[in-house]
Design a protein around this nucleic acid. Structure first.
Length: 427
RNA sequence: GGAGAAGUGGCAGAGCGGUUGAAUGCGGCGGUCUUGAAAACCGUUGUCCCGCAAGGGACCAGAGGUUCGAAUCCUCUCUUCUCCGCCA
């Protein structure tokens, strides 16, 4: 969320941001509501002052055992007026609060201008797409051959696009999670968190998933809880409504959670296989930083995520998202796209974003500055480190052999109990 | 799930209709003393909103209500603790 005062004073910047993002928003309506709210606030606060003064007087009169009925009558009328004005202010504030929550963040100056993903910029790439001496299979063919994911039974147990991992598939999933967590906690200095997989409305609002994207989230019917769409939500909200010490910053957290996404509106698109599923595993990286350091930390976070793919020896490219493709809450975002050799396409396996104070303001996450002694908002960042389902696709397709077996990258073997290869299980 | 108790400033803990934004202690910050430190002593110390300012408003878990006036009374919700039940 943006600061309403800042919006008031930087109208052109907000307009430019909305235009560059291709977002529609009634800025005019917001500003006039803001003006009306302030006008009413002044009116009602003057009345409240009058009431406070009169109440003190009544207290004094009572102590002197004097009559207070006329004064009380007078104040009764004022109290009624206050109540009706308060109600008006409340209504306007509610509208205003909603509007402020659905304005997207301002893109950073280094973000390329553009309408959509076509304007994204490739920052760098790592590894070379493998040259095959045979026709590589797609992950669907490999999964079928290896028998490590049972989509049919997943659909029976729950519904379409809920993958059910079997045998080596389940083991591979577990090993990847373990491998990533070990890398980030050991080498990169993140603290591991194992958070709840259900979060409340305040948390979802804090990181920006709602109110704007509520229909994309799974919600429980009887309790106002949501299934986490990403570990970003519980981990960022760890410090909601807290004032951190400046010397604690930056804070680094990593967490594994399954991620639940309704993917409403994307039916028919990539619905087969693991590319777009309702539940997938992900190891997430989250940082809380000093505002002066967030862009530096952003680059480091990206490198931490990249290292996962490097150790897994999967070729990838890093894309800097354009204003039109940038997520709602982000100021700047890099996507890591891993190469899927079977189809010759790139799949997004990580999104590394700097939200600046956008989430911190919503979630009220501040730190006390030693020098100024005042509290100010931290900057929050996060990135996938990395998302599993699509990484599994790229891993299988990249390391496949002609006979349909899959060689495992060296880095993963210790986590697979020394296993070197995925093969068709014996019957 | 049932019964009971409680939620007050960074922490501990008073207050239970009217100079209480909130006693007191600890902590924090500044100072005196000291070669330095500790101790002792003195002072100071919440957040948010409106306003150019002067100033004003709000906040005692959260949301409503009663009242001229609510941290204090009433209702609901949430959280914590104790006991019982159930259960990985």
């Amino acid at each position: 969320m943006l600061d309403i005062r800042w919006i008031r004073e930087n109208r052109e910047k907000v307009e430019a941001s909305l235009k560059n993002r291709g977002a529609s928003f009634d800025l005019e309506g917001l500003l006039s509501l803001d003006e009306e709210r302030r006008r009413l606030l002044q009116e009602v606060e003057a009345l409240k002052h009058e009431r406070n003064v009169a109440s003190d007087e009544i207290g004094l009169l009572l102590r002197e055992k004097k009559d207070t009925t006329s004064k009380k009558e007078e104040m009764k009328a004022i109290s009624q007026k206050i109540a009706s004005l308060d109600e008006k202010v409340g209504e306007i504030s509610k509208k205003l609060d909603y509007l402020v929550l659905i304005i997207p963040n301002i893109p950073h100056s280094s973000v390329p201008l553009g309408e959509d993903s076509r304007a994204n910029k490739e920052v760098r790439s790592w590894g070379k797409p493998r040259k095959f001496s045979f026709k590589p299979k797609t992950h669907l063919e490999l999964l079928e051959h290896l028998g490590i994911i049972d989509f049919k039974r997943g659909a029976k147990v729950t519904g379409a696009a809920f993958p059910l991992y079997v045998g080596d598939g389940a083991k591979l999933e577990r090993s990847l999670i373990q491998f990533m967590l070990e890398l980030h906690t050991g080498k990169h200095g993140y603290q591991e968190i194992s958070p709840p997989f259900l979060v409340n409305r305040e948390s979802m609002t804090g990181t920006g998933q709602i109110p704007k994207f509520e229909e994309d989230m799974y919600r429980l019917k009887d309790d106002d809880y949501f299934l986490v769409p990403t570990a970003e939500v519980p981990v960022t909200n760890l410090h909601r409504d807290e004032v951190l010490e400046e010397k604690e910053l930056p804070l680094y957290y990593t967490a594994y959670t399954p991620c639940f996404r309704r993917e409403a509106g994307s039916y028919g698109k990539e619905t087969k296989g693991l590319t777009r599923v309702h539940q997938f595993d992900k190891v997430e990286l989250v940082k809380f930083t000093h505002p002066d350091k967030s862009y530096e930390e952003h680059e480091k976070l990206l490198k931490d995520a990249e290292e996962v793919l490097q150790l897994l020896e999967i070729p990838y490219r890093v894309m800097l998202l354009s204003t039109g493709d940038l997520g709602f809450a982000a100021s700047k975002c890099y996507d890591i796209e891993a190469y899927a050799a079977g189809t010759g396409t790139y799949l997004e396996v990580s999104s590394c974003s700097n939200f600046e104070a956008f989430q911190a303001r919503r979630a009220n996450i501040r730190f006390r500055s030693k020098s100024t002694k005042a509290s100010q908002f931290v900057h929050t960042l996060n990135g996938s480190g990395v998302a599993l389902a699509r990484t599994v696709i790229c891993l299988l397709e990249h390391f496949q052999e002609e006979d349909g077996s899959v060689l495992l990258p060296m880095a993963l073997r210790p986590y697979m109990g020394g296993q070197e290869r995925l093969t068709t299980p014996p019957r």
